[in-house]
């Protein structure tokens, strides 16, 4: 091992929470090795700050101190591997789900998944969504609408939750705190999160919408998606919901 490798190994050991003694070989005599804590502290602080930014509603719900403990453990298990930290913490919701015996908040993972969806939608690629004009053009070209292949736009996400957390998440996201009690009960919800004109939106999907968009996520045609929606909900109003999806800009024409 070269001298440079030895030094880097010694400093990285400190960053990982290890012993400081090995660094003495690379510092001038009588150096206070406690100073090296500045790097360890800075590393943890930066990672926790990014996680707070990416999971703000989780942070609001559990408080700064508890969030710090959750985040610090996460950083040890999933340290950053990329220079850009904008998407850091992909595994955080799953980790929260796995450690329910520690936080005793059964709906906390649902909140984390919604935070994650917000981040994914916010930083997703830009591009054209399927519009009413596109549909009119297809009709003009005598292309069967039912054969139109669809896909969900990258700036839209579907989150399945085990509790009715949509109202709680929305309140905390926009107000940062709860001004009144919000009841959270077990309830399987399917929530659409999407970006439109720079803003992130969220709403619960009906059974018909869920099935329609599940088919869209499999890149099925409009006809197949509508059929699956109607099988799940015979009252599914395709014209109404399809117009809403177009207005929300969450559909794209599947290429190829």
């Amino acid at each position: 091992m070269s001298t440079l490798d030895g030094y880097m190994t010694a400093l990285v050991s400190i960053l990982d929470g290890g012993d400081k003694a090995a660094l003495a070989d690379y510092c001038e005599a009588n150096t206070d090795l406690e100073i090296s804590a500045v790097y360890r502290n800075g590393f943890i602080k930066t990672c926790v700050k990014v996680l707070k930014s990416n999971y703000p509603v989780v942070m609001s719900l559990v408080g700064e101190d508890y969030f710090f403990n959750l985040a610090r453990l996460f950083v040890q298990k999933y340290p950053p591997r990329q220079g850009s930290l904008t998407g850091y913490g992909l595994e955080f919701p799953q980790e929260i789900e796995d450690c329910i015996n520690q936080h005793h908040l059964p709906y906390l993972a649902d909140i984390a998944y919604l935070d994650r969806a917000w981040v994914e939608c916010y930083f997703a690629t830009d591009g054209p969504s399927l519009s009413g004009d596109d549909i009119n053009k297809l009709e003009g070209d005598a292309v069967s609408l039912t054969e139109l292949p669809l896909s969900l736009a990258p700036w839209a996400q579907i989150v399945k939750t085990q509790f009715d957390v949509a109202d709680l998440w929305t309140t905390l996201k926009h107000q940062g705190q709860l001004n009144s009690n919000v009841n959270v009960a077990p309830d399987n919800q399917t929530i659409l999160v999407w970006r439109k004109e720079g803003a992130i939106n969220l709403r619960q999907l009906t059974t018909g919408e869920q099935n329609f968009l599940a088919a869209v996520c499999r890149r099925e045609t409009l006809g197949t998606s509508a059929q699956e929606a109607l099988e799940a909900d015979p009252e599914f109003d395709l014209t109404h919901y399809f117009a809403a999806f177009l207005q929300q800009g969450i559909l794209q024409k599947e290429q190829g």
């Binding site: 070269s2 001298t3 440079l4 030094y7 880097m8 400093l11 990285v12 960053l15 690379y26 790097y39 800075g42 590393f43 930066t46 990672c47 340290p79 950053p80 591997r81 990329q82 220079g83 930290l85």
Partner: peptide
């Protein structure tokens, strides 16, 4: 500085010793 080691990114601007070896790196 350096901040990556064995596939991990340490988020800090870690100092280099001012040696010929570090200069080459």
């Amino acid at each position: 500085v350096w901040s990556r080691f064995e596939g991990r990114y340490y988020t800090e601007l870690l100092p280099l010793p001012r040696t010929a070896e570090a200069l080459t790196s």
